[in-house]
Design a binder for these strands. Sequence first.
DNA 1: GTGGTCTAGACCACG
DNA 2: GTGGTCTAGACCACC
Lengths: 134, 134, 134, 134
Amino acid sequence: MQIQISPQEGVPIYQQIVNQVRHLVASGRLAPGEELPPIRVLAERLTINPNTVARAYRELEVAGVVAKRRTSGTYVSSGAAPMPRSERLALLADRIDALLADAEQLGLDVEALAGYLRERDACRREEPAKEGVR
Amino acid sequence: MQIQISPQEGVPIYQQIVNQVRHLVASGRLAPGEELPPIRVLAERLTINPNTVARAYRELEVAGVVAKRRTSGTYVSSGAAPMPRSERLALLADRIDALLADAEQLGLDVEALAGYLRERDACRREEPAKEGVR
Amino acid sequence: MQIQISPQEGVPIYQQIVNQVRHLVASGRLAPGEELPPIRVLAERLTINPNTVARAYRELEVAGVVAKRRTSGTYVSSGAAPMPRSERLALLADRIDALLADAEQLGLDVEALAGYLRERDACRREEPAKEGVR
Amino acid sequence: MQIQISPQEGVPIYQQIVNQVRHLVASGRLAPGEELPPIRVLAERLTINPNTVARAYRELEVAGVVAKRRTSGTYVSSGAAPMPRSERLALLADRIDALLADAEQLGLDVEALAGYLRERDACRREEPAKEGVR
DNA sequence: GTGGTCTAGACCACG
DNA sequence: GTGGTCTAGACCACC
């Protein structure tokens, strides 16, 4: 399971984990019934405190995204189906809107923004992929 | 001066003000020498605590974006020139990158994202502009 | 606000707080808009760790029972109306059922249980009320 | 031997078994000298891990409620006499007290509680007896 | 002053 | 080996 933590702005670590698991489930990369890494394992991999991972898993559990089997591990809920493309896009709506608002305030139109989007995307693909270490 | 506050997730109010003033200056909508609204006036308009506006102005001052003239008010620094388009785009780089990373994790490619960007932009222009007040 | 913690069986402390706040709200003893004690204050009063109280308050928040105003405190949600008597009784249904099951297994009928209930209740009222300290 | 397991809140499975065996002995339904089901048989019947049943039997043994005869099985201790009614009631004292405390916090008096007790009891007797399996 | 996050580490319950 | 709870204490952000 691919999870990247970055000390990005002010987003709490546990929140980043929650978001990313949700995204992996929404895109079908994590299928219902699939097992998530044990709390301690993921904590070690990300070099963060196990309590932080536990909090993320707990939130995912109350949200119904995952289910914990006490002594056996944590699994993607059987009811957590992948989302259609349009809904996945909708998950980004708020941030897109905020971006558009800021761009407008900067005197940039949507085409400039779209162009820049492609440019940055090209960069990402060239880079050797930097590690998301904290 | 057009400033919109939204209780959006976790972005601090003072930070929103700082960003927006920076943007207005970068785009040339606020010209060097121009006067900003007095703290109390802006606070009342946005219905927020005057301390919050004061903090934003203070940060803008130490950043050299604005200058306070003792008894008379707050003005855009004479050294605060509008930025070229490329630099203005660069201000959005971090958020663009984060967006691309999330989109990828959602299994969405850059073209889907660009398309959605245009779609949301169209929505914005139709709407009567919702109030950004608290 | 009256909250009692007891190292009773295995019920986690944070859970006891959650339950009791819910009950106080359900019975109308805590009215919508009323302020709860600050995390640190309640923690000190119960001589437990502030993190434990914070966890209880957080759960109450996601459940919509209370709302936190970031820098000002924690309040009973305006939408958290008192419940009618029948619903309040229903909150105890699970435990009542478990009790009846156990009583049956002990060869005790419901009347014996009801009688014992009154007897214990009489005791409670006589006692000087023992402290719920941990 | 009638034993029902329910994944009720947080009561451990092995504890449920212990309690129920104690209750059956206290009420005289399991007489001294009577044989308990073999570990594997009970485990299979309740569809739980044999280790869990073993743990329950072990606790019952150290408590002197049952005795293991090396090669032959597990039996109710000869010293395990049925308890008088008052003592059986006393076994429920803690839970009764907790219930009364909660009821009081919910603004319900003991009579309301006793009435509800009878009501739930009536329900139990009508129902076809729901399965207590996992 | 408010709440929020995170760490480090201990101890428990379960199977 | 799983996850759960709790503590102690640090540091941050906001107003």
